[in-house]
Nucleic acid binder design. Structure first.
Length: 211
DNA sequence: GCGACAG
DNA sequence: ATCTTGTCGC
């Protein structure tokens, strides 16, 4: 992925690539692992981390990091242009290609329906989903129980779900990235978050990126 | 024009 | 994102 973009070019790239997004999973999609992506910010650099977790045991089975300078500012809606180049390099360094990418941010729940998770999925061809700690759209609070969810909407469209992964804890915001459907994405996030609010993939990647 | 705005 | 430990409570 190119690293130099003007804001207008970046928006045009999102508009160009958004039509490649697929919202259904591949035939017989039953991943045995999930790969979490996260980026940590320090004074002079970004550290991208990719952690692959065994979905049966939640055990860490592969990981990689990549460090590099900041090449694009933080602009809501253009998150991928800041974090994705480094994340792609981290993914390349994994011993095994990921089966599904769990991104720290939004997928279709984005003003142009092309958040970080969609961008990561389309560029790699790997099924992907987004799990955000905060939403870009509107939502009503889901029920209080683990597994309860409500629609996340933007401009009148349903773009994802506010999902309660732990009882009475702030929901996470799940949306389709690429080659997955929202039900499958929801199930996967719940499976990855048996004990904490955030999926184990994100927690592992966050921890690794802080070193 | 003003505020809000994934990480 | 980041500055930051213990502590209160389910």
């Amino acid at each position: 992925m190119r690293e130099q973009w003007s804001e207008a070019e970046a928006i045009a790239e999102q508009e160009r690539l958004r039509y490649a997004v697929e919202t259904v999973a591949p035939e017989g999609f039953e991943p045995k692992t999930a790969t979490g992506l996260d980026v940590h910010y320090t004074e002079n650099a970004l550290v991208a981390a990719a952690c692959t977790i065994d979905l049966g045991t939640d055990e860490l089975i592969d990981s990689a990091t990549c460090t590099g300078p900041e090449t694009f500012p933080y602009i809501p809606g253009l998150f991928a242009f800041r974090e994705l180049p480094l994340l792609l390099r981290a993914i390349e360094q994994l011993a095994t290609p990921p089966e599904v990418l769990v991104c720290d941010g939004q997928g279709l729940a984005h003003p142009r329906r092309f958040g970080l998770a969609c961008h990561a999925g389309v560029l790699t061809g790997i099924p992907s989903l987004g799990v955000g700690k905060n939403a870009l759209g509107e939502f009503t609070a889901p029920g209080p129980h683990r597994g309860d969810w409500s629609a996340l909407t933007d401009a009148g469209e349903t773009v994802g779900r506010a999902l309660r992964t732990q009882p009475n804890v702030k929901p996470v915001f799940v949306s389709v990235g690429h080659r997955i459907d929202i039900d499958t994405a929801t199930d996967l996030v719940l499976k990855l978050a048996p004990r904490y609010r955030l999926p184990e993939t994100t927690r592992q990647a966050d921890q690794l990126s802080r070193r």
